[in-house]
């Protein structure tokens, strides 16, 4: 089986500081990979390198494209990479405001990716947008409201709908539940888990919340100071951490 995404030796430095160093892993179709670590451990740098937002200094990111099979996305031309970014890839930002157009209605936000890939039938776009609002549990009557009138949790769900509408195969998520209160977090996680399973998505989720990876991720990487210190099946890493930092991380979770 070809991995959907094969990452080899990714390094990114900011001057003398290390963003992330020599990260390699394979992600197979339908698999969800969690990346955890403390603030400043290079999680987001890594994610941005993978998603093409940052250019890494070394390494390869090989994506199994629909048309031409495995290709290194870092040496692709920019139009090709941006095309991937709005078809097969999706990026869910931590702050919904970064990923939404706040001045455009919810329907327009969901429809934007459809129109970007050439959909030109208003009725179809609107039906799909309404359908997706339903799937992320937003009332269809709010299709013409702007995201500014939505709560934080709704904005985040709208962002997810907007990203998944073109049926991507790989979703990058940067702290998708950050900044939401716990009950909203729980619902969002439930929703995400359902969507990931139903659509057979592969996902890479960056978070510092171990509960999120416990629920969503099949596999886990623990990062510290730009290096991967431990990797393995989620339950294995969380229940039997080997590295000193993983042990610290797991034991730091408050039990209520």
């Amino acid at each position: 089986m070809t991995p959907l995404l094969s990452v080899q030796g990714i390094s990114k430095r900011y001057g003398i500081h290390i963003g992330c160093a020599d990260v390699s892993f394979d992600l197979y179709p339908g698999e969800v990979m969690g990346i955890v670590g403390e603030s400043g451990s290079g999680k987001s740098t890594l994610l941005n390198c993978l998603a093409g937002h940052l250019a890494p200094d070394e390494g390869q990111v090989i994506f199994d494209t629909r048309a031409d099979g495995p290709r290194d996305t870092l040496t692709m031309s920019e139009p090709e990479r941006r095309m991937l970014g709005r078809t097969d890839w999706a990026f869910v930002h931590q702050h919904a405001r970064d990923g939404l157009r706040m001045g455009v209605s919810a329907g327009g936000n969901v429809g934007e990716r459809l129109m970007a890939v050439g959909e030109r039938h208003y009725g179809n776009i609107r039906n799909k947008a309404t359908d997706w609002l339903g799937r992320v549990e937003i009332d269809a009557a709010r299709v013409d409201d702007r995201p500014t009138t939505f709560s934080g949790g709704m904005q985040q769900r709208l962002q997810i709908a907007r990203n998944l509408v073109t049926g991507p195969r790989l979703v990058f998520m940067d702290e998708p539940t950050g900044g939401l209160d716990v009950s909203v977090q729980a619902r969002l996680l439930d929703l995400l888990r359902g969507l990931v399973r139903d659509m057979g998505l592969s996902a890479i989720i960056v978070t510092h919340d171990l509960a999120v990876v416990r629920l969503l991720a099949d596999r886990l990487m623990v990062m510290k100071s730009g290096h991967v210190v431990e990797a393995g099946l989620t339950d294995q890493v969380l229940d039997d951490p080997q590295h000193a930092y993983s042990q610290l991380l797991v034991s730091s979770v408050l039990q209520v």
Binding site: R101, G107, G108, E112, M115, A116, V117, Y122
Partner: peptide, 18 residues
């Protein structure tokens, strides 16, 4: 330069929805 004009239709979409 990359002929990414989906956004122009978002404006027209907003017009129709409103």
């Amino acid at each position: 330069s990359l002929e990414e004009y989906g956004l122009m239709h978002v404006k027209l979409y907003e017009d129709i929805s409103r």
